[in-house]
């Protein structure tokens, strides 16, 4: 292979053309003429008309947050949720402590004890959301699919502690009975409804 093609720097011949750019006005009169012609042509109203037209159509695509929210992908990692077993309603967490161990910002802690049914019972569980970097390792390591990330990304409250109560993260028992607990689809799951939003790529090739 020869390098001739690359070495040919005569680019002007391959369908290129020069853009017709007017010379900058040099005299005062010339500048005045340019300003006057641009102002009077009404180019400004071309853009304003687009906005006005869409406003009257009442077909606005803007999401009316916070009244309206976009569905969030299951892979999104917001405030944690604690799930229950569907059949018995007991907590899935067995207190194995792997989330506590794997947490790279060291924000998970738990207390466990030997309970009256000879099982390991989690008596206290907390996540310090002030430190949490939402990396998702805790959910990934959990052998029981007990701790998962929920979609609640609005972290505004008087106290950070409001988010870290085990009871707050745990699915309420009545919500479970009402069938409101959804199985975590796992890592790599697609955003709900994303089939519908698939469109043909608007490119000719």
């Amino acid at each position: 292979m020869s390098f001739e093609k690359f070495k040919d720097r005569n680019v002007g011949e391959d369908g290129y053309y020069m853009v017709d750019i007017e010379d900058y006005p040099e005299t005062g009169w010339g500048k005045f003429k340019q300003v006057a012609s641009r102002s009077l042509k009404g180019e400004l109203f071309v853009g304003l008309w687009v906005v006005l037209r869409e406003m009257f159509k009442f077909d606005i695509h803007t999401v009316q947050y916070p009244k309206e929210k976009l569905p969030i992908g299951p892979r999104y990692r917001a405030v944690h949720k604690m799930l229950r077993l569907f059949e018995s309603g007991t907590e899935r967490c067995i207190g194995c402590g792997l989330c506590e161990k794997i947490c790279i910002s060291d924000c998970i802690r738990m207390d466990t004890k030997y309970d009256e049914n000879s099982r390991k019972e989690v008596t206290e569980y907390s996540i310090n959301l002030g430190r949490c970097i939402f990396c998702g390792y805790c959910a990934e390591v959990c052998p029981e699919l007990a701790i998962v990330h929920g979609g609640r990304y609005e972290n505004a409250s008087e106290q950070r502690a409001h988010f870290v109560e085990f009871e707050d993260m745990l699915t309420p028992i009545d919500a479970l009975k009402a069938g409101q607990q959804e199985e975590y689809p796992g890592f790599g799951a697609i955003i709900p409804g994303s089939d519908k939003s698939v469109k043909k790529t608007p490119l000719a090739y």
Partner: peptide, 9 residues
């Protein structure tokens, strides 16, 4: 000690 702590903690 049973079930009060993981040994690595």
């Amino acid at each position: 000690f049973e079930y009060t702590s993981n040994v690595w903690e």
